[in-house]
Amino acid sequence: MNDNKRYKAVIIGGSAGSFSVVSKILSKLDPDFPVPVIICLHRLKHVRSGLVEGLNMKSKIKVVEPNDKERITGKRAYLAPSNYHLFIEYDNTIHLSTEETLNHSRPSIDYTFSSAAYTYRDKVLGIILTGANKDGASGLKDIHDKNGTTIIQDPDSCDINTMTKAALKLFEPDHVMTPEKIAEYLNQLAV
């Protein structure tokens, strides 16, 4: 499936246990991976710094916490900053918001997935990882409904599989994969 031109972005959402999974995926990514990667992880509000540095230690592409209105470009990963929701604006820029929490979360993964679904339609790949709540499941379904591609981390490979199971309950994803397979899958998109 040599369809790397198809995707305008890869969106990854995760919660409890997902830091190491995202870190693993980023560490195996081709350094020239051309599609922008947008990451929304739940984090503790008081642990503000360290996450982006932690991901950058292993990632093959640069990970940034974007400012509002920042243009989205390839060979880069964008991490939703602490205490902000991250949306994708119609003109392919980042939009940050401090509005109310959704599913007790800010950033909310549902918001990031849904905005990606509306902006990129079928040209987006959404991935949901391990996590202990339901945030993200309905947003990933929005991507599915707009004919985007969806991957759910294999619940058996999750630290906590509440999030992946919630997504599996809502729709049938294109793929259910372990973290290793997800990295391989992404790289073959970039071939």
Binding site: N67, D68, K69, E70, N83, Y84, T98
Partner: peptide, 8 residues
Amino acid sequence: LGNHEGLT
């Protein structure tokens, strides 16, 4: 400004 706001 806010933490993740810049000037345009």
